[in-house]
Design a protein around this nucleic acid. Sequence first.
DNA 1: CGCTTTAGTGAACGCCGTTAGCAAACACTG
DNA 2: CAGTGTTTGCTAACGGCGTTCACTAAAGCG
Lengths: 250, 250
Amino acid sequence: MTKPQLDRSGVRTSRRERVREATLAEIKEIARRHLVEHGSQGVSLRAVAREMGMTAPGLYRYVSGIDALLVLITADMYDDLADCVAAADASVPEHDTDQRILTSLRAFRGWALEHRAEFSTMFGPRSRLDPDADITAALEAGRRFGATFFTLFDRLVAEQRFEVPPEDEVPADLARELRAFADTVGVSTPHAPLGAVMVLSSCWVRLYGVVCMEIFQHLNFVMADMEPLFESELRGVLERIGVEYRPPAG
Amino acid sequence: MTKPQLDRSGVRTSRRERVREATLAEIKEIARRHLVEHGSQGVSLRAVAREMGMTAPGLYRYVSGIDALLVLITADMYDDLADCVAAADASVPEHDTDQRILTSLRAFRGWALEHRAEFSTMFGPRSRLDPDADITAALEAGRRFGATFFTLFDRLVAEQRFEVPPEDEVPADLARELRAFADTVGVSTPHAPLGAVMVLSSCWVRLYGVVCMEIFQHLNFVMADMEPLFESELRGVLERIGVEYRPPAG
DNA sequence: CGCTTTAGTGAACGCCGTTAGCAAACACTG
DNA sequence: CAGTGTTTGCTAACGGCGTTCACTAAAGCG
């Protein structure tokens, strides 16, 4: 007697599919732990299989190769990061836009600090992947992550918090790219004029830069603690978008 | 009859040492080509040895392992980049500080674009290296690279091109880090007050961020051409340090 | 010339990704 | 129930990798 069940998306799910799903989840979980413990070089199908009490070829029933596995866990990591940022955002009273942004951005850096290996594979060069590997899963997850910030940013634009450069100050070639960016990423173009998207890009570049620098340890030998530099950059960014900066609590 | 010769630093050099030097250079050259052609994963001692008509263990007479080899070529790449930027700087009339800075920074991005694999290993996460590998060689080369920009920046400070935030606007913890930074990196502290170093850091973070984003292809799916964004960021940075922006020639 | 130092080899160990062929477990039909 | 097709995981194997060790052949030097 088989008990057909429904998964959360309402699709019929046999017992077989459920156990298969669980196995795949175990694979990803172990792979990710290896990533954390031994760096991206330390993720290997054989090691994962060994830990599961399986042999490596068996994993090919679940994953089409090591590259695909890395893409899968990358997608999971984006989800994690997005959850973390969203949780930070939700921990602040809804009306306090300033504090929500501040908290979300600090949560981004905090997550990166606590998940260096993950962050490196997510935001570093795709060194281990085939240049033409199928990374749509990771891209989609990345998009979800970005959405958290874009929502907050949309709000700032709506509240007219900062001075938006007029459209004719945006160079034509940049305008074309920004439009593509805004369309794909879901910033609602009517609410967000091109000048605003330009500001957003600039701010994101700055924060991305300072966090990458910290995680990739490029000033390691010259700067013991990167937090002050991050906070300084954060302050500059917030100033640009008309958000009040407050020093961190701790 | 041995002909003892002098190398450029005046050290006595036997024939043996010269051929040894040449072999090491060949190793590095091949390794670097493999890096360019097959990515950092594609660099292997065995492949290098094969191409030289040697066996892999023989390379251990020259290099203590694959990690050390990667560090060696990373140092070479920093030298290359530094040369490229310095050449760009030198191609501009000496007195035209504005154009020199503009050209140097564009040369930085240009080099990155033409040497994606190299740039990724230099500025990306140290994913393939032991966390405690000896990377002093690469660090030293990186320092030389930075010096090019610091020299130009020193000049801007001397010329009082931009408004330097007063010292008491620099938070204490950031000040401590910036001081360490300036000392190690060779910005002459008397000429460069802390506020100026803060501005320099911020500018560098922005450019580093936008170039990393482009090379690591993080907006790849959403933005076809990153040059306009780079130029926009460049413009913003230059504006901050009182340098006149001019659109690129092409 | 003989002696010492060095460069390079071959074999071996233990990893790795991946493919092919096969056997057991499973789900489902009549 | 038996029979049948599918799914799962295994073993064996290939070729590649980094690295160590014992060893030979050459180069340098007195």
